[in-house]
């Protein structure tokens, strides 16, 4: 059902993107293109503008420049229109509807195009797309649980499942494995690999082990600009990246991450 024709059209094309808050430039002229089906990791020191970039793409932050997905301009559209154009995201803290069951969460995510008549009726059984997503994210057995009682990792998977049933063709995931156990990380990585290909996936991540294991391509952001781009090895070999992470970076917190990139 999904993925048809995405190859012929463009993936995500960002050009000259700028986001300013009260005179502070969080994103300063980013050019970025992600091919359809790619699994792209966005890394960079704190304050590099990664989350702001995702905010701009999804309509949460006001931006100038251009963001095109499958050829259509996204900037200037309201959030829910961008979502309907096939762009979905998660947040750093999992936001599922805690008072609703796993099944209800997914059913709502699947239903943005439903007619008023469908909305006013009860849900009968489990829609096929929802059943598939339940299998994919491994929560079939827990489908009647309120989402509020799920473990942290399960909530993240539920969020990803919601994007799947929503049938987005571009997933923007903000630190999906933060706070997860090693086992959960591996499961999540495998899940992302299964999803990418049919869909385009962009992951903001700090965890360098996770990046090395699962990224196909990497973009490094620094001070609101794209510093480097390529495969994991290419990026690690880039002197500019090494400099930012080791030497002159104003952000001390980045050093830890830097060791993981360059060292190892």
């Amino acid at each position: 059902m999904s993925g048809t024709g995405t190859e012929s059209r463009g993936g995500l094309e960002i050009s000259a993107l700028r986001v300013e808050f009260d005179g502070f430039t969080a994103v300063d002229g980013v050019d970025l293109s992600v091919a359809p089906g790619d699994l792209r990791f966005l890394i960079g020191p704190n304050g590099a503008g990664k989350t702001t970039l995702v905010d701009a793409v999804t309509g949460l932050a006001r931006a100038t420049g251009s963001v095109r997905f499958e050829g259509a301009e996204l900037l200037g559209r309201p959030v829910h229109r961008i979502a309907r154009a096939g762009v979905g995201r998660t947040f750093q803290t999992a936001t599922v509807f805690e008072n609703l069951t796993v099944l209800q969460n997914l059913d709502i995510a699947a239903g943005a195009g439903r007619s008023a008549a469908t909305l006013l009726r009860r849900r009968k059984g489990v829609p096929e797309a929802v059943a598939e997503a339940l299998e994919t994210i491994g929560l079939t057995a827990l489908r009647e649980r309120p989402a509020g009682v799920l473990a942290h990792g399960q909530k993240q998977w539920l969020e990803i499942g919601m994007l799947l049933v929503q049938n987005v063709r571009l997933l923007l995931l903000d630190e999906p494995v933060a706070g997860m156990s090693h086992e959960e990380r591996d499961a999540t990585g495998a899940l992302l690999h299964r999803i990418a290909g049919e869909r385009t996936v962009v992951v903001i991540e700090h965890d360098m082990d996770f990046l090395r294991s699962y990224a196909r391509t990497v973009s490094v952001l620094h001070a609101g600009r794209v510093l480097s781009e390529g495969t994991v090895d290419e990026v690690r070999a880039d002197p500019a990246v090494q400099e930012v992470y080791l030497g002159t970076a104003e952000d001390a917190a980045a050093v830890a991450g830097a060791e993981a990139v360059t060292g190892a």
Binding site: E135, T136, I137, G138, G153, E184, T188, A190, R194
Partner: peptide
């Protein structure tokens, strides 16, 4: 895909 799902806790 029907690859093995992530292990449910």
């Amino acid at each position: 895909l029907t690859a093995p799902p992530p292990p449910a806790a």
